[in-house]
Design a binder for these strands. Structure first.
Lengths: 203, 203
DNA sequence: GACAGTCTACCTACCAGAAGGTAGGCTGCT
DNA sequence: AGCAGCCTACCTTCTGGTAGGTAGACTGTC
């Protein structure tokens, strides 16, 4: 499982795109091979099983995600700014192609996916929700938001909305739904919920 | 495509459960046959292709959904009550087993699904969003909600949150996430967003 | 510098099983 | 007799995965 290898990285990249558009059950080693210029059997050299491939993908995604969260904390101080940047991660993923969040797609086909992958899905969301929750707590303490929000519920709601907005947005090929919906949620955290219906407008 | 037939109805029911838990790509005619006590080939008698089965399922779901919306309008007068009942439809679907919204699952595997099904997915969501939007408009006129909400955005956000809450809720096997998140969204529609973090508590 | 041995990164050939789907035959009810 | 509703048998294509082989690069020893 030499993830450093350029071919392995290429396989991971192609597999990620495929899962994001077609789901775990919707792609095959043949699909990868045709794009990677490699025979289907050769993929097993880098990733013994399909489950190993999926797991490697989730590990990669989680690591990258955590790196992005640290980067946000370094770039922005105020909680509101951090949340907007957080939403931006999902916007970026969604914006490039008609791709859904990798974790979202794997979660949809939960019952068809190896148990190790299921654990990694929860791990990813745990990180996302805990970070968001802490961010909201910080905003509440700083007086940026309403002081008596249930940060846990708000955090899980924001994440659910992001995932759901990608799902519905893709069906309509509408890239605006995600920032609009995320913007509405964020606008509810402080006094003026009206008018601000785009996450970009939420400072 | 004799949907009146008891066997056909049984096939539809089993297929619905399977898609809700495993997705469109994740179930086969063999899976259905083992549960229906019928041979795989016999399913083709009722539904010539897998696409036909999926389409019939969506037509059924959409019809049933519209029936439920009418029922809500008959039972509840106030917009807030209607929205709570609307959320209840999704709660009911989710609560029985670890089942996601049928349309949500089909939407996730969009690229692996026939074009006719894709059109039906949008149709379902169009109905859901338009109904919710009209309901919010009504609530705004009646003074139940903030008067200057963007009802289109709020409607699409509520739907996105419901779909996303099912997705994340299932991964954690937590049935509370959906009412909690829906409750938060609904609570944002009027003056007291604090404290009310369960859709049941939102009158 | 030559040789043997080993490792990497692929290949071809193959497997068993599952996929959706078709053709034609049987059975029982009207 | 005719038809609905199912069956068996079979098709092709694809599935993830395995076995064994090979070209070429690298490594250590003499």
């Amino acid at each position: 499982m030499s993830s450093q290898n350029p071919t392995a990285l290429n396989i991971l990249s192609i597999a990620r795109q495929l899962i994001m558009t077609r789901g775990y059950q919707g792609f095959s080693f043949r699909d990868i091979s045709s794009q990677a210029g490699i025979k289907p059997a050769s993929i097993h050299y880098h990733f013994p099983t399909k489950g190993d491939l999926g797991e490697a993908l989730l590990i990669e995604a989680t690591t990258e995600f955590q790196r992005q969260l640290v980067s946000i904390e370094q770039q922005h101080e105020r909680a509101a700014q951090r949340l907007v940047a957080f939403v931006g991660i999902f916007e970026e993923t969604f914006g490039e192609a008609d791709r859904l969040c990798l974790v979202c797609m794997l979660a949809a086909g939960q019952d068809t996916v190896p148990a190790e992958i299921r654990a990694r899905i929860r791990e990813f969301w745990d990180i996302a929700v805990r970070w968001t929750e802490a961010c909201i707590d910080k905003g509440m303490r700083a007086g940026e938001f309403y002081a008596d929000l249930d940060s846990r519920v708000v955090a899980q709601t924001l994440l659910a909305t992001l995932e759901g907005a990608m799902l519905t947005g893709r069906a309509y090929q509408d890239k605006q739904k995600l920032p609009e919906s995320a913007g509405f949620i964020l606008s509810c955290l402080r006094q003026q919920p009206e008018g601000i219906c785009n996450s970009h407008a939420f400072e």
